[in-house]
Design a protein around this nucleic acid. Structure first.
Lengths: 341, 341
DNA sequence: ATTAGCACTCAATAGAGGAGAGTGCTAACA
DNA sequence: TGTTAGCACTCTCCTCTATTGAGTGCTAAT
């Protein structure tokens, strides 16, 4: 279904006006504003056609037209030109990486912040679980009062620690022996491979130091459990307060609640993502709560896993800007991660 | 300024009704509801008195009365009976501590969550900086490619780490020597005492390994910087969406923004706190943005430092419940921390 | 000191009328 | 045949005007 040039121009004008003002667009006002070289009556005819095709709709008989979700979809698929961030913003983003190279957490936060600042929509960053990093070494440090620090070092700069209990009167040789045992067993394995079954194996082979090993194993299991979860970060959720379509309290509450809860958010975002930026408009979203919102998501490869970034805003979204920004940020992230590996 | 029994009863009835319904309370309806043994006319007279005293006010001539901020203040100071959480909730709270003993972060989050769930207001927890913990030991582990893990262990279970660069060809003896140096210099000191000047001292005394020491010092400095900041956690900010007084978008935005930004929040909360729970009602708050809200805060001692927990809600607050809950949670936290020290 | 009675006030609600923006249709035009 | 001007019509939004009703303050009686 392809539109002739004039219909396209009209559709685009309506979309741009509507996205800007959130008001239905009338034929006369539009002709004036966009300086189209045709009369309002002609535009009305074209609008009627576009409405028949399902790309426009009328809130009521005597109002202007607004783009339907199919209208936005057509625009996004066949007409849209992405609008990446400008020089200055781009520089700002890169700076983010340079400044906080040591602190990946900070970088992630910065990315989310940048996305929401740039687009004025809510943004999210999902960092995949780190189960694919490789185990490097394990250390036990005695602390005081029968406690020890268990330190788990992996590659990719992943380091985790826990405090465990140990018998008060254990020799440092014993401790070293146990440490060696663990290292032997785990060396070179991926974290996801270190399953309970492996842990069980060690437990059996070293029965004389059962207590301390049990504790250590439990701590490790716990750490792995944690690292198996992906991390979700949201920024700028309050931006939706500015959108007139959400002036209704109930709607607002529902949406903010979804954005606040990591689990609901995870459900919203598509599981699989291709190379291209993925766009879900309104009812294309599977979840009831956000059937009035649009989602712009991109996936990034992080140590072989799939991470996701994106923005979430009203259907009346500046898709050109959102897509341009999300895509740019994704590319920068991937470059950065490539540099690390 | 003390009120006679009847005036107190009337004031309390008005406060209870108003807190529940958010509507001005009229004489007739009140008499009926609370089954007071006096006539509406009498109540009207008393109300007029209470209004003269400044404890009540009228939105307009022909509306009922609502409690003024002074009215709430009088109630809170002279009449209120705290209402601590019930058995079940109390048990829930204690469970929180038992389950997550290893992960203080989790506990804090749980506390904030509990507070906001119980009271239905926004809650916050401020965890003081850990500058008063004592340095215990420092370790350097070589990782690959000229990198090492710097591990800083303090008492109270505080552990921090950073990755630093080291020369690729350094012997493990050298590394140990350097580690020993650091440990010597820092042992037993409080983190806040480890100032840049100390770091400078070490730097000079070991000039031959300048590069690695510089890196280590920078990392330590960085870590200390981080740990010097108190942590702020907010939960249930969206609860204010339910309060009818904030149905105005602009007001809502201002308040949510304050709750979202750690720094603004810090400014809101009183710096010094005594034993008792502190209550700030409406305009008693110094900051413009929350002059329409009330604050219930309690301080807790954490390793000699002052932490804070509390809730923030509309002036029309269930103070009895808020105070009871905050106080109970504070006590439990202090008990728990005492057990740790 | 308390209460019943009554006139008065004022916000909230509903309805009516008018203005304005926009449409669809028809007929004229290039 | 595509485009345009003209016009009647539609429908929301705004304003203006009762009307209602909860609540008060005052007065006089108990």
């Amino acid at each position: 279904m392809t539109l002739d040039e004039r219909k396209k121009r009209i559709l685009e004008s309506i979309i741009r006006d509507y996205v800007e003002t959130a008001e239905p667009v009338g034929s006369r006002a539009m002709v004036k504003k966009h300086d189209l070289k045709i009369s309002a009556a002609t535009v009305r005819n074209e609008m009627a056609d576009l409405e028949d095709m399902g790309y426009l709709e009328q809130p009521h008989t005597s109002a202007g037209r607004i783009p339907s979700e199919s209208g936005f979809r057509y625009y996004v698929d066949c007409m849209m030109e992405k609008e990446p961030p400008g020089e200055r913003e781009y520089a700002l983003l890169q700076q983010l990486f340079e400044q906080n190279i040591e602190d990946w957490e900070q970088v992630i936060l910065g990315i989310a912040h940048f996305l929401s600042q740039m687009t004025r929509y809510a943004s999210f960053v999902i960092v995949p679980a780190i189960k694919f990093t490789e185990f490097r070494s394990l250390q036990l440090f005695p602390l005081d009062k029968g406690k020890a620090l268990l330190l788990l070092v992996c590659d990719m700069g992943v380091i985790m620690h826990r405090i465990i209990s140990i018998p008060e009167l254990i020799s440092s040789q014993d401790l070293q022996a146990i440490t060696g045992m663990f290292n032997q067993a785990f060396r070179g394995k991926r974290l996801e491979e270190v399953k309970r079954s492996d842990l069980q194996l060690i437990r059996e082979s070293l029965s004389q130091r059962r207590k301390i090993i049990d504790n250590a194993l439990e701590a490790i299991d716990n750490l792995l459990q944690n690292s198996r979860d992906e991390k979700v970060m949201v920024s700028g959720a309050l931006n939706i307060l500015n959108e007139p379509e959400f002036k209704d309290m109930e709607k607002l509450k529902r949406i903010l609640n979804v954005l606040e809860e990591d689990d609901s958010l995870r459900q919203i975002i598509p599981g699989e993502l291709g190379e291209a930026v993925d766009i879900k408009i309104g009812r294309e979203n599977p979840l009831e709560e956000i059937k009035e919102m649009s989602l712009v998501v991109a996936g990034y490869k992080s140590f072989g896993e799939l991470g996701k970034i994106g923005v979430i805003g009203p259907v009346r979204m500046e898709y050109w800007k959102a897509v341009g920004t999300v895509e740019t940020v994704r590319d920068i992230i991937e470059d950065y991660l490539k540099g690390l590996g």
